[in-house]
């Protein structure tokens, strides 16, 4: 069952759709380049509906020339790492998911993160963050529930 707070999004029981709200983020600190490389995976359906709400028009991720710009803007609003200024490099769209690629200069791995994509819209949204250093996982995955703001990242 979807629990939606946005009035413009129609709630429905989908026997086949994803009846859950989940997003994942990998934050890789590249020790050689001294950059933070962030890969954010969002559900394409959720993102399309949300962008339609924000843009006031239909936004098809794989066809709209402005989709990447809109998706980047939203992702930069909802993903943050302490003392880091992210920029969005672009988006890849698959049948069911959209992957956003963000990057920032970083002298060290981040200490705290905020990951609130869809959190203001879905009460059951769960977002997870995995910190990596040079593509090796460091520490456990951190889960962000809808009410969570900044959280420390274990190393």
């Amino acid at each position: 069952m979807r629990r939606l707070l946005l009035p413009a999004i129609i709630s429905a029981v989908f026997a086949t759709a994803h009846q859950y709200h989940f997003a994942h983020l990998d934050a890789n600190w590249n020790s050689r380049a001294k950059t933070l490389e962030v890969t954010v995976r969002l559900h394409a359906d959720d993102l399309e509906q949300l962008l339609r709400q924000r843009a006031g028009r239909s936004v098809e991720l794989d066809r709209d020339p402005q989709a990447e710009e809109l998706a980047c803007a939203y992702t930069l609003e909802t993903v943050a790492f302490e003392r880091t200024r992210l920029r969005c490099l672009g988006m890849q769209v698959a049948r069911h998911s959209a992957t956003l690629f963000l990057e920032a200069p970083a002298e060290a791995p981040p200490v705290r993160a905020r990951f609130r994509s869809f959190s203001a819209h879905f009460a059951d949204q769960i977002n997870t963050v995995q910190l990596l250093t040079d593509n090796q996982r460091t520490g456990a995955t951190v889960a962000f529930l809808a009410a969570d703001q900044w959280k420390a990242l274990p190393r």
Partner: peptide, 27 residues
């Protein structure tokens, strides 16, 4: 893989009403 790596996710053998992420869990 991504779902199976997510922390604290439910085993498949969980009652329908208790599953958090029904899509990856039950489908």
């Amino acid at each position: 893989v991504e779902y199976m790596l997510s922390p604290g996710h439910d085993p498949i053998m969980t009652n329908s009403e208790s599953v958090v992420a029904l899509g990856p869990n039950a489908y």
